[in-house]
């Protein structure tokens, strides 16, 4: 479970990026976080990854108070959270297989395990045939699939997706959202930050709306009343 209690974050004097935000996300939930640019969505993601420290309040993930996690323990904590970005952030000098295997290598997984595991994740994202391709040879949608496979291969309980469809056309955007829904159906908590209101409306998931660092709306899954 993810729990934010009266969390605020200020970068400097002025309007805080997040102001007294409290929310709870249950295990296995699919949540959209929406809001204008500069509303504090990305700050929220960074706080969840412990890239930033809150100015006030506490964040608890899977029972762990992030404020009490020591610097040395951060890598281990992050292995339980997968992240996907708008610009994919793949390593351009490595092929699809190597990009996915990279996530396992950096946590010290033995090569024989990696060789077994990567093909199954490639199949899951539908790229088994393109494992030798380099990122520049793939479409945007395919690149995002590689990024999702990389984020999931260490089997995190939470997947954070920061504008995952921001650089994709409509068809590819839907493909990615379907894939994320599939991931969620397997039990992973999925949090998607997005601008794509059409997708948000159609998917009928829980939607948290942030404006100027404050939560102004929190509609439940299946709620058709969500309209921006």
């Amino acid at each position: 479970m993810i729990k934010l209690e009266h969390v605020s974050k200020s970068y400097s004097a002025g309007i805080p990026a997040l102001n007294d935000v409290s929310l709870e996300i249950e295990d296995g939930e699919f949540v959209f976080i929406v809001g204008d640019s500069g509303s504090g969505k990305s700050t929220m993601i960074k706080l969840l990854l412990k890239e930033l420290e809150p100015s006030a309040g506490t964040i608890t993930i899977n029972g762990k108070n992030l404020g009490r996690i020591r610097r040395r323990q951060i890598p281990k904590f992050r292995r339980n959270i997968g992240v996907v970005f708008q610009d994919f952030r793949l390593l351009k000098d490595r092929n699809v297989y190597e990009n996915i295997a990279f996530a396992q290598k950096v946590i010290g997984e033995p090569t024989r395990n990696i060789k077994k595991k990567v093909p199954s994740f490639l199949s899951m994202v539908g790229l088994a045939a393109k494992y030798r391709s380099y990122p520049k040879e793939l479409s945007g949608g395919e690149q995002q699939r590689v990024a999702i496979a990389r984020a999931l291969i260490n089997e995190p309980s939470i997947l954070l997706a920061d504008e995952p469809t921001g650089n994709l056309d409509n068809n590819n955007a839907w493909e990615i959202m379907k894939l994320l829904e599939e991931v969620n159906n397997r039990g992973t908590t999925v949090i998607v930050v997005t601008h794509n209101m059409e997708i948000v409306k159609v998917m009928k998931k829980r939607v948290i709306t942030v404006q100027k660092g404050v939560i102004v709306g929190d509609s439940k899954a299946g709620d058709t009343a969500y309209e921006n």
Binding site: P75, R89, I107
Partner: peptide
């Protein structure tokens, strides 16, 4: 730089 940033997000230790 990009690779290092990704490594850190994936959970690579400082040592690595």
């Amino acid at each position: 730089r990009e690779e290092i940033a990704i490594m850190k997000l994936i959970g690579a230790t400082d040592y690595l």
